[in-house]
Amino acid sequence: MLEIQNLHVKLEDEPREILKGLSLTVKPGEVHAIMGPNGSGKSTLSYVLSGRAGYEVTDGSVSFKGENLLEMDPNMRAAKGVFLAFQYPIEIPGVATMQFLKVALNAQRKARGEKELSIPDFMRFVKERAAKLNISQEMLKRPVNVGFSGGEKKRAEILQMAVLEPSLCILDETDSGLDIDALKVVADGVNALRSPDRAMIVITHYQRLLDYIVPDFVHVLSAGKIVKSGGKELAHELEANGYAEFVEKVA
């Protein structure tokens, strides 16, 4: 589904490279965790995959379902099935959450040549999913993320994911700022979306999240490269020993 080869990325207005030859293959149904110390390039990877401006790919390639992902606009990537759950979800004053979901879903359906959902069908569709994530009707009427607590913002991201039904979910530090109860709700929401046709990349600094969202593969990202890959037990090793070993290795 996703094939990243030798990806080199720098910021547009800085010469320093952030990703220095990252390669990763993700197949449908797989959950990959990417762990690494701060500054290793985890968030850059999520932004480059979702198409945020400000980054320059200097070498390498990313293909998604056989197409060159890097050539697509962010909205086209979304319509093709890429979804980024933001580490810091953006507040959009004046745009109601329900309206935002409707515009986004219909834009994606239109881009894929599908029919727009009727309003009653859409409302039912969203309400069902919102209920599972403890998201109230009142929250859906509020502007996107405005005045939401940290936990509410993360649940709202997962709701968007549940509504848009992407084929590749990238979760960027979804556990940051969550207490254990909120973490469980979010993890349940994510686990409910696991399916044989859907892949996930879970980016996290801590192993804690991976107790709830159990990955098939764990990769250690350090200084812009994947320096070690393994099964879910690798996360426990990292928790016990820290990242020191990997940081020194590249230094």
Binding site: S50, G51, P74, N75, I90, F100, A104, Q108, A111
Partner: peptide, 8 residues
């Protein structure tokens, strides 16, 4: 970017 990343 946030809106575009959702397909708009």
């Amino acid at each position: 970017f946030y809106l575009r990343s959702r397909g708009i």
